[in-house]
C-alpha cells in the first residue's frame, strides 16, 4: 500500500560519499532486475527509503485493523463475522511479514513501533476515515483492498528481495479478501432498499479516499523518480490510479451503484475513463494527520502498547527465569 510521506528525501549527499564503483555495480544490478538481498551492499539512501516504505506499509496493516475491527462485534451474520475475523487476522500477519522484511535492513521492530507512535512514521491515509455503517466493511474490502492490490502487485518485482517475497505472499491473501468484500457489497446492492442505500452511501464516502491511496499526482511526488530508478516502485501514482478507476468503474456498474464523480466519462480515444479533480487539499490535510479519526487511530495503538507494557515485561521476566533455571 502506498504510504505517503512528505518529508524531504533522506540525505542525498550520502550517496556521493559511497564508493563509486560499488555504487555503479549496484545500479547495474538493479537495472538488470536482479534482487538486492540483505547482505548485499546498497546505497544508504536506498536502505533508508526502503525502511521508510516497508515500515509504513507494515504500520498500515496494523492501523488498518482498527477501522474494520470497529465492526467485528456488530457483523450481521456468523459468516460475515468469521470472514472479517479471518481478514483482520491476516492483516496482522501481513504486518508481521513486513516488519520482518524491514528488520533485514537493520532496524528493529521496537524502533519502528516507536516511530509510528511518535508520529515520525506515517501509515496509509485511508485508515484515518471512519467506518460508519456495515457497508463500509464491504467497501473497504472492495475498494481499499482493490487499490492496495494494484499498488502491491508490481511490488512483487520490487528490487529488494525480502520486500518482493513478502508481497508475493501478501497479494495471494489480499485477493481472496478483496473478492469477499465485493461479494458483501453485491449482497447489499441486491438487497433491500435500505441495504442498497447503505451500499451507495459507503461508495460515496470511500471512492475519493481510495483514489488518494495512490499518492500525490506525478508532478508533485518528490520520491517517485528515485524510487522508479531504483525499481522500488514500478509504476507512477497516476498510472496506477487510472488503472484502478478503469477496473473499478465496471464493477460499480455491475452492482448498480453510481460513482460519485459527475465528470467521470469513458474516453474512447484513450480507452480509459476521464475523471474529476481530486481534492488535494483534503489529501494533504489527511497526510498531515488531520483525517477525521487520525487521533483516535493512533491513540488506540499507543494505549494498547503503553497500558499493557506489563504483559511484555512479564513475558521477558518469565523467560529470563526459565533460562536461569535451565543454566
Amino acid at each position: 500500500m502506498d504510504t505517503v510521506e512528505l518529508s524531504k528525501q533522506n540525505d542525498v549527499s550520502a550517496i556521493a560519499a559511497d564508493d563509486a564503483g560499488r555504487h555503479a555495480a549496484f545500479e547495474a544490478r538493479v537495472a538488470a532486475d536482479e534482487f538486492i538481498e540483505p547482505k548485499d551492499w546498497m546505497p544508504e539512501a536506498y536502505r533508508k527509503t526502503l525502511i521508510r516504505q516497508i515500515s509504513q506499509h507494515a504500520h498500515s496493516e496494523i492501523v488498518g485493523m482498527l477501522p474494520e475491527g470497529n465492526w467485528l462485534t456488530r457483523a450481521p451474520s456468523l459468516r460475515r463475522k468469521a470472514i472479517l475475523l479471518a481478514k483482520i487476522q491476516d492483516e496482522c500477519g501481513h504486518g508481521l511479514y513486513l516488519y520482518a522484511a524491514a528488520e533485514t535492513l537493520g532496524v528493529s521492530r521496537d524502533e519502528m513501533t516507536e516511530a509510528l507512535h511518535a508520529g515520525r512514521a506515517k501509515y496509509s491515509t485511508i485508515f484515518n476515515y471512519p467506518t460508519l455503517t456495515w457497508a463500509d466493511i464491504g467497501a473497504i474490502g472492495w475498494l481499499v483492498d482493490g487499490a492496495a492490490i494494484l499498488n502491491q502487485v508490481p511490488l512483487q518485482r520490487t528490487s529488494y528481495g525480502p520486500y518482493a517475497r513478502a508481497m508475493v505472499r501478501i497479494c495471494k491473501e489480499e485477493s481472496f479478501h478483496q473478492r469477499q468484500g465485493y461479494e458483501s457489497m453485491m449482497q447489499l446492492a441486491n438487497g433491500t432498499p435500505a441495504q442498497q442505500r447503505m451500499a451507495q452511501d459507503a461508495l460515496d464516502r470511500w471512492w475519493w479516499p481510495s483514489l488518494m491511496m495512490f499518492g500525490p499526482p506525478d508532478d508533485n511526488s518528490p520520491n517517485s523518480a528515485q524510487s522508479m530508478r531504483w525499481r522500488i516502485k514500478r509504476d507512477t501514482n497516476d498510472k496506477l490510479r487510472q488503472k484502478f478507476i478503469d477496473v473499478t468503474v465496471p464493477q460499480a456498474q455491475a452492482l448498480g451503484l453510481t460513482i460519485p464523480d459527475p465528470d467521470l466519462k469513458w474516453n474512447p480515444a484513450r480507452e480509459s475513463y476521464d475523471y474529476g479533480a481530486i481534492d488535494w487539499a483534503e489529501f494533504y490535510a489527511v497526510v498531515r494527520g488531520e483525517g477525521p479519526v487520525a487521533k483516535d487511530r493512533i491513540k488506540a495503538r499507543i494505549d494498547a502498547w503503553e497500558s499493557q507494557s506489563w504483559v511484555r515485561e512479564a513475558a521477558m521476566a518469565h523467560e529470563a527465569k526459565r533460562q536461569n533455571k535451565a543454566a
Partner: peptide, 28 residues
C-alpha cells in the same frame, strides 16, 4: 473479537483473533 487491534503485542492480537475465529466457527 473485542480485543482486535488492542492486544499487548501483535502476536497476541493474532492469537486472540485466531481463537475467536475458531470459536465463531464452532458456534456456526
Amino acid at each position: 473479537s473485542e480485543w482486535c487491534g488492542h492486544a499487548p503485542t501483535l502476536e497476541l492480537d493474532l492469537a486472540l483473533t485466531n481463537i475467536g475465529l475458531d470459536l465463531i466457527g464452532q458456534a456456526q
